[in-house]
Simulated scan of single mutants.
Amino acid sequence: MDLGANDAYIRFLGHARSATMHRVGYVLGDGFQVMALGSQAVFEFANLVAGETFYVVENWSPEGGEVNASLGMRVVTRELTGRSRADTWMLVGVIDPLARPASQALLQFVRRVAPRARRVAGICTGGFILAEAGLLAQRRATTHWAFAEHMQQRYPDIQVEPDRIFILDGPFWTSAGMTAALDMALGMVEKDLGPDVARAVAHRLVMHHRRAGGQTQHSELLELAPRSDRIQQALDYARRHLGSSLSVEQLAEQVSLSPRQFSRVFTAETGQSPAKAIEALRVEAARVMVEQGRHPLEVIARETGFRDRRHLREVFLRRFGVAPQALRRHTRSRPDA
């Protein structure tokens, strides 16, 4: 959708769906992870796209006043009381929720306000606040991958899914770490104002694409982590041309190395052979298409460089233990798909 030509239409959508303002309350504890505040920009730009103030964002804390972020900066907050109101509560996590657990005052507040809020969200390790308050029992949830196992061990009655960007189960939303808060906030905007507004906001925020909740936290490009710009350039080229053969000779030519030298340097920097790394990139792209799209598997296989549908299925079974069709059915059955 062309943003310039459709701004008036998007503003109309926002106006039609925003008869009342929606209050978003960020709950900050001492040492909160400062990255979470970046997600407030999603609501700010949703107002700009809609052409009116649909979202009102406020910062709160149990004691009120100035609260120290993990980086040391201070943020002025309002004091949480029995009269505090918000349609959406965003519980902001800390860098280490095991070393800095939520206070009893905060837990009591969350238990009290959850039934009368439209939704309550745990950003990153903020999901531990919901878990400790007993609100995620018998529900699905996620958190930063580094603490997912700890959450599952500490709260066995929660179905922790460590490889998800964000999850919504009933009125409770939980997100993975750091930038995943942006994706979760965009998911909320889509629920409130529709997909056109959410896409426009993502475009204004210069996000390459809006990751849906079911998308994996894992990134093959980050996992490979080459040391040199030359190998990174080869990987970037491969990601843009997954439908091509991507032979060692072709990749080596892109970075002006001989095939033998390229293979040696690539393996030394990434710990994988070029063939294994390219397969990993292909299966990551195919998984996103299977989970988020409706393309036939033959099309997905062709566009991501697999020989055919059967080859795609073989790789999925080897890597994920599940066939592409089963993964698609499972994804569509989830409310955050």
Rank of each mutant, 00 (worst) to 15 (best):
L281Q: 04
G305R: 09
S244T: 02
F262L: 01
R260V: 13
E303G: 03
A286F: 10
I278P: 11
P274W: 09
K276V: 07
R240S: 11
G243Q: 08
L251S: 03
I300P: 15
T304K: 11
Q254K: 12
R307T: 13
Q250C: 00
G305F: 12
M289W: 10
S247T: 02
A286S: 11
G305N: 08
A268T: 04
S247K: 00
A301T: 09
R307H: 12
G243Y: 03
G293D: 10
A301H: 10
V283L: 14
V288L: 15
L251T: 00
E291Q: 12
S263E: 15
G305A: 08
F306V: 03
L281F: 07
R240G: 03
A252C: 01
G243K: 01
A252P: 01
F262V: 00
P274L: 08
S258A: 08
L242T: 07
E253T: 05
S256D: 07
A252W: 02
E298C: 04
Q254R: 12
R294C: 06
R239E: 09
F266M: 06
A277W: 07
L246Y: 05
A301Q: 10
L251N: 04
V290G: 09
V248Q: 10
Y237R: 03
E303L: 14
R282M: 01
S258R: 04
I300S: 14
R264M: 10
A280L: 08
V265I: 14
E291A: 07
F266D: 05
P259Q: 05
L246K: 04
L297Q: 14
G271H: 04
T267V: 00
G243S: 08
P296Y: 11
F262N: 00
R239M: 06
G271C: 06
R240W: 00
R294T: 10
P274K: 11
G243L: 01
T304Y: 13
S247G: 05
Q261M: 11
E303Y: 12
R260D: 11
V288N: 15
Q272K: 14
V290Y: 07
P296N: 10
Q250S: 08
V248K: 04
S245M: 05
R307G: 09
A285G: 08
R282F: 01
I278Q: 08
M289L: 15
S245D: 05
R282Q: 11
P274F: 07
A268Y: 03
T270R: 02
A275T: 13
I300N: 14
R240C: 03
I278R: 14
F306N: 04
E291W: 06
E253R: 11
V288A: 15
R240Q: 13
A286C: 08
S273V: 07
K276Q: 15
H241K: 03
S244M: 06
V255P: 06
A301G: 12
G293T: 06
R302N: 14
V265N: 05
V299Y: 14
E284P: 13
E269H: 02
Q261C: 01
V290K: 10
E303T: 15
T304F: 13
E284G: 13
E284Q: 15
E269D: 03
G243I: 03
E269F: 01
S273W: 02
Q254E: 08
R282L: 01
P296I: 12
I300Y: 13
R282K: 04
V288Q: 15
A275C: 01
